[in-house]
Computed example of a mutant assay.
Amino acid sequence: MASSSAARKYPKRLYDVDKTPIQSRSMNHSCFLANIQTVLEAVGDDVVSELRESAVGVILKLKELEYTWSASCVHHFLANQLAIDNIHEMWSLIDCMPLRFSLYEFGEITGLNCDPFDKNEIWDVEHESFWLEMNVPTSEGPTLKELQALFPICRNWSREKRVMIGLLCLLCIGILGISSNSRIPLYCAKRVMDPAAFQRYPWGRVGFTSLLESIKVLTYDGKKSYTLHGCVHALLIWVFEFVPGLGEKFGNRREGAGVPLLSWRGSRPRINFSDFCAQEKRTYQKVRVRHMVEKPIEDRYPKWEDNKVHTELDNMIQDILKGQLDEKYWEVMPATKSTKRKSHVNPPCVLDTMDVGPSTKRKKDTEHVNGCHTSETVVAHNIAILGLVESVKNLTALME
C-alpha cells in the first residue's frame, strides 16, 4: 500500500515491544467443544439434525472440524494489540501490519447472526414449569452443571424438551463460553422455548460481546494465567483466515456454515512468528494480511448503541480503505551504538577575551620559552583554540 501523503497519527501499541506479556502465562477458557459430544449422546440422535440447523448450529460444525487449539498463537495477537479506545473491536499487529477483530470479522468467520438487537421487540414466554422440571431456580438461567445432571434422565423426555436441553448446552459452551458453574442469563435461556424467537435472535452479537469483553478487561499484572469467555475458537480462525500465510502453512481450508473455516490435524501447530515474518518478507516483500472486512467507508464501523469515532483509529481505518496505510508507522528502530551508550563531552572552558597586553610576568614566560612571540603568533594561537572548541561542540551535537 502507498503511504498517506500527510503524516497521520494511528493508535500506538498497547505494550511496548520490550514489555509485551510473556507467553508462559496460561490461557483459561470454558469453550470446550469436546464436551458437546456428551451433550449429543445425552439428547439423542433424533435431535442432532435440528441442533445442527439451529441459529447456533455452527458450534456443532466447529466441533466436527478436527483441529488443535493453539493458545500460544492467540496469545501472540493479544500481546501485540493496539491501544484502541473502541470497546467493540480489537486491533492487533503482526510485523507492523494491523488486523481488526470486530463484529464484522466475527460474523464472517462464524456465520452467526450479528444483526442489531431489536429494542422494540415485546416478547416473553412462560418458562417456570420447565425450569422446575429441570430443578433450576425460576428467576435465573441454568448452569451447565445443572444441565449435565439431567443427562441420565432426559433421554426419556419428549423430543421438544431434549432440543431445548441441547440448545441450552450449546449456548453455555459455544456462545457464552462461561464456566460450568456460571448461569446463562435468563433472557437468553428462555429463548429456547420459542423456536421462532430463538432463530431470529442475534446470537453472534451475544457471543462476540462475551468474547471481546473478556479481552478488554484482560490484565497480566501479577497473574500467571488469564481467562477468556465466549467462542474463543473464533479468535484462532480469525488469525489463520486473515493472515493467509499462516493458513497456508498450518491449516487446511474447509467449508462450514457457508464461510471458510480451518482445521488442523495432528499435533498442535508450533509457530515461530519471527521466522514466519522473515519468510513472508523474502517471498512477498511484506507479511500478507487482510486488515479487515472491507465495507463502504460510511459503514466502516459495525452498528452499536454507543458508537463513538476516535480520531487515531479512524485515521487508520480510512487509510486502509483508501490504500494509503503507512506500514512503517509501528516500525521499531534498531538501537545504535550512540543510543545504547551516549557519550557527553564537555567543551573546555575558554575565556571570552585573552589579555595580550605586556606584563613583566608574561615577558619572563615568553623569554623562557624559545624567545619572544609576536602578537600575530598569539592571535593565531587563539584562533586555533577557538576552532578546536567549535569542532568539539559540533562533535558533541552529532553524538547526541
Rank of each mutant, 00 (worst) to 15 (best):
K145G: 08
Q148T: 01
T396D: 09
I84Y: 00
I94S: 11
W304L: 02
V58P: 00
Y284I: 00
S343I: 09
E367G: 00
S214H: 06
G357Q: 08
T339R: 08
S375D: 00
F117K: 05
S225K: 11
M399H: 10
L235C: 03
E294I: 13
I237Y: 07
S179G: 14
R155L: 09
A196C: 02
V356R: 02
Q285V: 01
V369C: 04
N28W: 07
P152M: 01
V293Y: 10
N80T: 08
W123K: 04
E376Q: 08
A278Q: 15
H291V: 01
C154F: 01
V392N: 05
S391N: 02
Y226Q: 11
E140N: 07
V356D: 01
R155M: 09
R25V: 14
A2E: 12
D365Q: 13
Q279P: 02
I36L: 15
W330H: 11
N370D: 15
E255N: 08
G371I: 10
W157C: 02
K322M: 12
S267L: 11
S70C: 15
K364P: 00
R25P: 03
V74M: 14
Q324S: 11
H29L: 01
A2D: 10
I84P: 02
K9F: 14
H229E: 00
L246F: 06
M90A: 11
E294G: 04
F250M: 06
G247N: 10
D306T: 09
L82P: 06
E50H: 11
L262I: 15
K364C: 11
G323F: 14
H127Y: 05
A42Y: 13
